[in-house]
Design a binder for these strands. Structure first.
Length: 200
DNA sequence: GGTAGGATGGGCT
DNA sequence: GCCCATCCTACCC
């Protein structure tokens, strides 16, 4: 399955919120595995204290300040890896955390990577789960997602999507910001408890 | 249905 | 030394 065209760099060279909303319904592809992006979170520059970039440019956050359309992958809690896609123009911080996927290709491989037998809904319904399922690691940090093995593609029959907005999950700083975006009613979301649409 | 606790290591004060 | 943008299991309704 090839899906649609690869999203060009101009897609990412916009405000982080625009990119976070725009990624919903697109297809994240890594080799033979792929899933529809159903949940994202925006991490901004400036007043967003939850963003890794809020502490400034360091070795770790270098990619977030770089050109758009690249992957920022980091280790969380010593065990899991999270995938972000860099937004904003070169020199400005901003990235989008991919939080959940609806598996559409390479499901058997995804199951094998995830270990125990699991329902399709639980294969990639969390930021640490989807990197495991798709085989994405810190080795992809800085990778260009407009070419190569890890890319985001347009979905073939993409129509209008109903987007719900909530607060972000698992953060302690700037928790009030409405920066989590999800496909309303989708069955592959993380943290089901928080999925009541509060805004749009 | 729900939640409490632990695993585990890198980044930054 | 403390803090995490998490996940799973065990255990309790």
């Amino acid at each position: 399955m090839l899906f649609g065209r690869i999203l060009p760099r101009s897609f990412y060279a916009r405000s982080t919120v625009e990119v976070a909303r725009g990624l919903l319904g697109k297809v994240l592809v890594h080799g033979p595995t792929a899933g529809i992006i159903v949940e994202t979170e925006a991490y901004l520059g400036g007043e967003d204290l939850a963003a890794h970039s809020a502490r400034g440019l360091t070795q770790r956050t270098r990619v977030i300040f770089g050109p758009p359309g690249h992957a920022y992958v980091y280790l969380i809690y010593g065990m899991y890896e999270c995938l972000n896609l860099v937004a904003e123009r070169d020199g400005r911080p901003g990235c989008v955390l991919i939080r959940a996927l609806q598996p559409v290709s390479g499901v058997d491989l995804m199951r094998a990577r995830r270990g125990a037998t699991r329902k399709l809904e639980q294969l990639a319904n969390g930021p640490g789960k989807l990197t495991l399922a798709l085989g994405i690691t810190r080795a992809h940090n800085g990778a260009d997602v407009t070419r190569g093995a890890l890319v985001v593609r347009q979905a073939p029959g993409a129509g209008e999507i109903e987007i719900a907005v909530t607060q972000r999950i698992g953060i302690t700083r700037s928790p009030e910001l409405p920066l989590r975006f999800l496909m309303a009613g989708n069955g592959f979301l993380s943290a089901r408890r928080y999925n009541e649409p509060s805004l749009k």
